[in-house]
Structures are given as C-alpha cells and as structure tokens.
C-alpha cells in the first residue's frame, strides 16, 4: 500500500519514529479543531443566556428586538465562515509543517 517515500515507509510500518510523527500531527490538528469549536461554542452557545437576560420590557431598549434578529438571522453566518477559513488555513499549515518535517 502506498509508494514509499523515505519516512513514509517508517510511518506505515509503525516504527516508533513514524508513530511519533503521526501523534504530533494529530495533536496539532486536534488543537486547531478544538480551538475553532471552542470559539463557536462560547460565542453562539452563550447567546440564549444573553438573550434571556435582556430587559423584559423591550420598549425600554428599542434596538433590542432588531439586534436579536440581526444576530441570529444574518451575523451568525459570516462569523461561522470566518472561523472555518481560519481553521482551514491552520490545518493546512499543520500539514505543511508535517511534510517539511518528514522530508
């Protein structure tokens, strides 16, 4: 399976060195994924609580309803795309670093 580049055969044959390479790549990729997920979860996940704490009489705060509509109806999407782009750049950089390491 696979065409052997020098280090790739090590990785595939489960040498200690190969396993260490894979583990370090996995760790950096998992860190990137968890960081992106944490930003998503903290920002969007806190919104229901924030909204529930809005003053109950909205006439005291005229921008309130519009703001909620704007956040959930529109702003959430570009926010998620920004996270996604950041993550993809980071993940690809991790893979490039890994490739540099094995060659």
């Amino acid at each position: 399976m696979g065409r052997p580049v020098r280090t790739q055969s090590e990785i595939n044959e489960q040498t200690t060195l190969g396993a260490a390479y894979v583990r370090s790549l996995m760790r950096s990729q998992l860190r990137a994924g968890l960081a992106a997920f944490a930003v998503l979860a903290v920002v969007l996940g806190s919104l229901p609580v924030v909204f529930s704490l809005l003053p109950s009489d909205l006439s005291l705060w005229p921008a309130g309803p519009t703001l909620v509509w704007a956040v959930l109806g529109a702003a959430a999407y570009p926010f998620m795309i920004v996270i996604a782009r950041w993550y993809v750049r980071r993940a690809e950089r991790n893979e490039r670093d890994f490739a540099d390491l094995v060659e």
Binding site: T7, I11, N12, V22
Partner: peptide, 20 residues
C-alpha cells in the same frame, strides 16, 4: 488502530497515496 490513525490523519501529498 495505529495504521488506521496514520491513514486518517496523514496528508495525501506528504506521505504518498495512503488511501485505501
């Protein structure tokens, strides 16, 4: 498990076509 993990996470370019 070790071999599967390598296949899941290694970029195709760096380690050759490890796909199955």
């Amino acid at each position: 498990t070790g071999a599967t993990m390598a296949r899941l996470h290694l970029p195709e370019g760096a380690a050759g076509p490890v796909e199955r």
